[in-house]
Amino acid sequence: MKYIELVQKLIVQKKVLAIMGPTASGKSALSMALAEVLPMEIVSVDSALIYRQLDIGSAKPTEDEIVKVPHHLINTHNPDESYSASEFVEDVHRLVKEIFARGNLPVLVGGTMMYFNALQQGLNDLPAADERVRERLQLQWKDNPQALHERLSEVDPESAARIHPNDPQRVMRALEVYEISGKTLTEHRAEQKNTLSEFSLVKIGLLTEDRKALHEQIGKRFDQMLAEGFLEEVKALYAQPNLHGEMNAMRSVGYRQAWEYLDGVWDYETFVEKGKTATRQLAKRQFTWLRKEPDLIKIDPFNTSLQQRLRQTISALETSVDTSL
C-alpha cells in the first residue's frame, strides 16, 4: 500500500481528512479512489445515510464498496428513529480514536453541513425535545405555517432570516428551544464552543463555478435513481404504519417529494420536477455553507479528472504535515 508513511505522520499529528461538497459533486467517487492508495476508513457525514431502508434515494454506497472500504455511520438507525448533531459529534470523536488506533486515516465524507459545523464550531446545551410542545407546534403549523415563521421573526429575527418559511422542522425546533429554555436559538449559538481539540481537519471542497454542469448531473442522478427503483423503495416505506411524512428520514430531499406524490399532492411529472428542484436547492444551500468554510482547499470536480482530484487531495495531505515534528 502506498503512502503508509504519510498516513502514519497524519495519525501522529492527529489530522483527519474531510471531503465536503454539494450533492452530486463526486465526493464518494473521490473517497473510493483514495482508498485505493491510502489505508483509510470512511465516516459518513450525511443525515440520510444513517437510515436503514433509505438506499437508492440517498445514493448510499453499494454493498461491494462497503465491503471494500470500512464505512461508518451508515445504516445505524431505523427510519422512525431520530439522530442529532450532538450524537454525530460524539460518534465522530469515538470513531476517529478507533480508526487512528487501527493505523488508518479517518476520512469524513458528506454534504450535511450542519454536522460539519457542529463538529468544528461546537454545540451548546440545547434543551431536549418536549413532545407536548412539539405536538402543539405541529398542530399550529398544519393550521397556519406562515404564522409560526412570523412568530419566530418576532422572538428571534436572526434565526428567522436563516430558516426558510417552508422548513417546518427547523422553524418548530427554533420555537421549541425558545419556549423550553427562554433563550433564542441565536443566543444558544453564541454560547457554542469549539469541539475540535482532539484532532484537526484537512478540508477538501468539491466546488464548481459551473452550476449548469452540477444541475445537469443532479438531474441525471435523479433519473438514474428512479430507473433503479427509487419510487418502489419509497412505496415500501409508505406502507409501514409506523412511518409518516413529518419524520426526519422522510423529510430527506427526494423522499419528501416522493411521499407527497404518494399522498396525492403531485402528479408523477410534477413529483419528478419537484424532486430535482429540491435537490438543486439543497446544493445551493451547501454552496452557501462552503463559501464561508475557512481553510477549504477547493477543487473543481467538473474541470478536473478523478486522477487529478486524487493527486490534489494527496498533495493537500502532504502539505498539511508538520515536517518539524
Rank of each mutant, 00 (worst) to 15 (best):
N104A: 08
R189N: 11
F88C: 03
Y115S: 05
L108A: 06
A129K: 10
A101Q: 15
F116Q: 07
N124F: 14
E158L: 08
V67N: 13
E90T: 14
E131K: 09
Y115F: 13
Q140F: 02
R102F: 09
E154I: 14
N104E: 15
F88E: 00
R132A: 14
R173T: 09
K68P: 00
M172W: 03
I163H: 00
N75R: 13
L139R: 15
K68R: 15
N144A: 13
H164R: 12
I180R: 02
P70F: 06
A160V: 06
T112N: 05
A147V: 10
E135Y: 10
R94K: 12
L73V: 09
A147E: 12
K142A: 12
Y83H: 12
F100W: 02
G122C: 08
P70Q: 09
K142E: 09
P145E: 11
V133T: 13
L175K: 04
M172A: 04
I163K: 01
T76K: 09
K97Y: 10
I74T: 12
L105F: 13
H149C: 01
S159E: 11
P168I: 06
E81V: 13
P127W: 09
H93M: 09
H164K: 10
Q120S: 13
L175Q: 01
F88N: 04
Q120F: 07
A174P: 00
H77S: 12
H77Q: 15
E81L: 10
L123I: 10
V171A: 01
V133Q: 01
Q120A: 15
V171L: 05
M172P: 00
R136H: 14
H149L: 06
E135G: 03
N144Y: 05
K97A: 15
P168W: 09
L139I: 09
V96P: 00
